[in-house]
Nucleic acid binder design. Structure first.
Lengths: 346, 346
DNA sequence: TTTTTTTAATTAACCGTTTAATTTAGCTAA
DNA sequence: TTAGCTAAATTAAACGGTTAATTAAAAAAA
C-alpha cells in the first residue's frame, strides 16, 4: 500500500505549513481566498484524502457505531442490520458489524474491541445464553451510549427497542382460541431469555383468559433454530400430545416443526393451525405459517439507531426504557394472499 | 461519555512515564517483572482499555476492512456478509459495513469514506448500474487491496470471487433441454452487469448446443428484484410467448414471475419448469423453484475475505484473477426433497 | 580498581490532524 | 507619529500511543 498524501505534503509543495493547509481545506477565515484556492487545487491534484484516524484522535469523534448481533445470515437479523445501516448512514455514521454467534464470550470480546476502537455507541442484541453482565455494568459506568434491540437485558439502565412479545403472543394465541382451537402446543424459547419468557407468558395469559389451564406438558423449551423446532415437535409426539394448533417461538422453529410433521404424518399440516413469530421474507409465496406475527426488522433497527444517535449527539440520558415497535398479525389464506388480522373484528 | 483512562493516568498513579506503562503492558523486556505486575494491576483496577485509534496512527494498521454491498436485507447478501465477517474475525479483523443500495454514487462515497477511515482493504460487490471506474483506478494506483465478489468490474487489475455464472447457466439450461423443454424463456439481468451478461450467455450457448436458435423475443432484460420478475413475466404474456420453461436470473425475479403466473393462470405453475439462480434460505420447505443453482454465499464471502487478507498481510500482488467458487445444481421434487442433480447421469 | 556490560528506566520524536497562542506586516484612526 | 487593529500566516501544544535514542545506576569483567 502506497503512502498516502498528508497535509504536510501539500504544505511543502506550496511553501506553507500544515496548519495553514488544514485551515484552508476547512475554509477557516484565517486563510486568504487566493491561498485556499491554490491549496484545494493541489489537494485534489495529488489526491489528498483526510486521515480520519488522525482527525478522530483530536476530536474524539469517530462517527462510528458498533453493532453486535447473534446471527447475520437470517432474514430478521439482516433486516435489522439494514435498518440500522440506513439510518446511521443518513446521519453520517458508519457501522462496525460484529457477530456473536450466540456466544456470550464472543459477545463480550466484540464489545471490548468496539470500545477500544472508540465507537461512539453500541447497538446490541444479546445472545441467548448471555448471563454475565459485568461488561454492561462497565459500559454504563463509562457512560458509553448503548441501546439494546430485539433481545435485551432488563434493569441495566439502557434503553431497549423491542416488539411487545407478550402482548402480541397473547393476541395471536387469543385469535387462535376464538377461531376454535383448544389444544394449543407451544415450542418455546428458553425462559431466561426475554423473547422466550415473554412469548410464553402471552401464550399462557391468552389460555387462562379463555378459561383454559396451561398444560406444562404441551410446552417444550428450546433453542430458536430449525433443528430445535424439529426436535421439539418430535418430543411432543413422544409425549403423545394431541393438538389442534402449534405456536412456535420463531419462524425457523416453525419450519423445523413443519418438516417434522411432514415426516410423521403430512395430514397434520392441514389439521394443525400454525402460528409463529417472524417472517421468512417470502410472504405471499408459501401458505406457511398460516398465522404469523410480523417482526418489523427494519423498523426496529431504525428506531434503535435513532435512539442511540440522539443519545450520542444530544447527550440525552438513557432511561432504562422499553420502546415498543408495533407488530402486525398476518394470516396467509389458501390463495396465498396475506392479510392483516383485525382483532377488533375477531 | 466519561473520559477514558490513558497510559498517562496509570503513569501518574505509579510515578512512572507513559512509555514505561506502554512497555509494561506489552511485556517489553525493558521493564522489570515487579513493575509489570504493579502496572497491570493498576491498569485493570481503573479499567484501562487501549485506544486503538491512537495505536493505529503510529502503526498505520487498523485491523479493519471495508465492505460495500448493494443490499443487505436479502438472503444471499446476508450469507456473504456472514462469511466475510466470520473469516475476517478469525484473523483478527473487524468489518465496516456499508450498503450502496444499487446506487453507484453512494458506492463511490462509501469507498471514499472507508479509505479515509484507513481500512486496510476493501471488499466490494458493485451495484448494477456502476459504470464509472475512476475511483477504482485511484484505488489501484494507491495500491489499496481490493477484492470484488459476486459482481465485479473486469480488467481493472483486481481479483474477483464469483461463481461461474456462464458455466452454471449453461449446464442448468442444458439439463432443462435434456428433460424435454424446448421453449425456454429468460428473465435476464442487464447486459452491462456481469451476472446478467454471463447467465444469458450460458443460456444461449446451451440452446445453440442443442440446436435451438435463441429467440430474442423470449428474453426480457431487467432488474434483479421481485418487481422486475413480475413485470417481466407480464411482458412475456403481452408478447404472446409460449414457453415450457422459464429461467430467471435471480431468485427474487423468479418469485415475481411466480406471483404473476398465479395471477394470470395458476395452471402454468405446473406446466412451466422453473429455474433460477439463488436460494431462498427455505430449502426443502417450498417446491419452488423446481430447479435452482445454489449460490454458496458464505463460501464466496469467506474466499473473498481470504484473498483480501492474504493481500493485506502477505503483500501478495493482485492478479486480475477470477476465482470461481463452485455451485451446485439442485432439484426440488414433489416430496419437497432437495437433491443435487448429477450432470454426468442426465 | 577501572572499564565494560546489563538492567530499568527516561527523554525525544513521531504518526496526521486540530485548536490555541503568537508573530509579522500592513492599515487605520487618534 | 504612534498606538491599536486586522489579515494571514506561523509556532506550540495536544490527542494517545509507539519506537528510537539516551541516561543512570548496578553488576560483571578486565
Amino acid at each position: 500500500m502506497k503512502k498516502r498524501a498528508t497535509l504536510n505534503d501539500i504544505a511543502q509543495r506550496l511553501n506553507l505549513t500544515k496548519v495553514s493547509i488544514s485551515k484552508a481545506l476547512r475554509d477557516h477565515p484565517d486563510i486568504s481566498e487566493a491561498t485556499k484556492k491554490r491549496v484545494k487545487e493541489v489537494a485534489s491534484e495529488i489526491g489528498y484524502r483526510p486521515n480520519l484516524i488522525a482527525r478522530s484522535l483530536t476530536s474524539s469523534k469517530t462517527q462510528t457505531i458498533g453493532v453486535v448481533v447473534p446471527k447475520i445470515a437470517h432474514s430478521f437479523s439482516a433486516q435489522v442490520v439494514a435498518g440500522i445501516q440506513r439510518y446511521a448512514n443518513s446521519r453520517g455514521f458508519v457501522i462496525v458489524l460484529t457477530v456473536s454467534d450466540e456466544n456470550p464470550e464472543l459477545e463480550r470480546k466484540h464489545i471490548e474491541s468496539l470500545v477500544s476502537m472508540q465507537v461512539e455507541g453500541l447497538l446490541v442484541s444479546v445472545s441467548m445464553a448471555t448471563r454475565e453482565t459485568e461488561i454492561y455494568n462497565w459500559i454504563r459506568e463509562m457512560q458509553i451510549p448503548l441501546v439494546f434491540f430485539d433481545r435485551y437485558i432488563p434493569d441495566l439502565g439502557f434503553n431497549s427497542v423491542v416488539i411487545d412479545d407478550r402482548g402480541a403472543a397473547k393476541e395471536a394465541v387469543g385469535h387462535l382460541i376464538k377461531s376454535g382451537c383448544r389444544k394449543i402446543a407451544h415450542l418455546a424459547g428458553y425462559n431466561h431469555v426475554s423473547i422466550g419468557r415473554q412469548r410464553r407468558q402471552g401464550y399462557e395469559e391468552a389460555l387462562r383468559e379463555h378459561g383454559i389451564e396451561p398444560d406444562p406438558r404441551m410446552v417444550i423449551e428450546g433453542d430458536v433454530g430449525e433443528d430445535s423446532g424439529y426436535r421439539g415437535f418430535k418430543e411432543l409426539q413422544a409425549r403423545n400430545i394431541e393438538m389442534d394448533a402449534l405456536f412456535s417461538v420463531t419462524f425457523p422453529v416453525g419450519l423445523g416443526s413443519y418438516v417434522a410433521m411432514r415426516e410423521t404424518d403430512p395430514s397434520m399440516i392441514d389439521r394443525i393451525e400454525m402460528l409463529a413469530f417472524g417472517d421468512s421474507g417470502i410472504r405471499g409465496i408459501v401458505p406457511y405459517p398460516h398465522f404469523y406475527v410480523e417482526q418489523p426488522g427494519k423498523e426496529i433497527g431504525r428506531k434503535a439507531a435513532e435512539l442511540l444517535l440522539d443519545e450520542i449527539e444530544g447527550s440525552v440520558k438513557p432511561e432504562n426504557q422499553l420502546v415498543y415497535v408495533p407488530t402486525r398479525f398476518l394470516e396467509t389464506n389458501s390463495d396465498f394472499q396475506v392479510t392483516e388480522v383485525d382483532f377488533n373484528k375477531s
